[in-house]
Simulated assay, not measured.
Amino acid sequence: MTFQSGHFRGQSAPVTIGSFARIGAGATIVGPTQIGERAIVMPNAVVVGDVPEGETTCGILQRKSL
């Protein structure tokens, strides 16, 4: 699934979300970004880069969760 985020200086940034990925409430995804299959973005996380397949990310400026 690919979304076009809001326009920034006349450009749009694609956000691609893989199958079975979960994105928590209030999460902010700053594109262009890819969220891998089965990846988890925790609530209120700020994602500024790609999230690999099967990885969990959380926090401000995206930290890898164990």
Results as ranks from 00 to 15, higher is better:
11 Q>W: 04
12 S>I: 15
56 T>K: 05
3 F>D: 06
16 T>W: 01
6 G>W: 15
31 G>E: 15
52 P>I: 04
39 A>S: 06
49 G>L: 01
54 G>C: 08
38 R>G: 07
6 G>I: 00
11 Q>Y: 10
58 C>Q: 06
35 I>K: 12
61 L>I: 00
57 T>W: 12
15 V>K: 09
42 M>V: 05
19 S>D: 11
63 R>Y: 01
11 Q>T: 03
3 F>S: 03
65 S>C: 02
22 R>Q: 08
5 S>L: 10
53 E>K: 12
24 G>Q: 05
37 E>Y: 09
48 V>F: 04
10 G>E: 10
29 I>G: 00
66 L>R: 05
13 A>T: 15
21 A>G: 12
46 V>Y: 15
42 M>L: 07
36 G>D: 02
27 A>V: 09
3 F>R: 07
51 V>C: 01
45 A>L: 04
55 E>A: 15
4 Q>K: 15
29 I>C: 02
9 R>A: 12
23 I>F: 08
5 S>W: 07
18 G>F: 03
33 T>H: 14
8 F>V: 13
7 H>I: 15
55 E>G: 02
35 I>G: 14
16 T>K: 13
57 T>G: 00
23 I>M: 12
52 P>V: 06
52 P>C: 04
47 V>Y: 10
36 G>H: 00
35 I>T: 13
19 S>Y: 05
21 A>L: 05
5 S>I: 02
8 F>M: 13
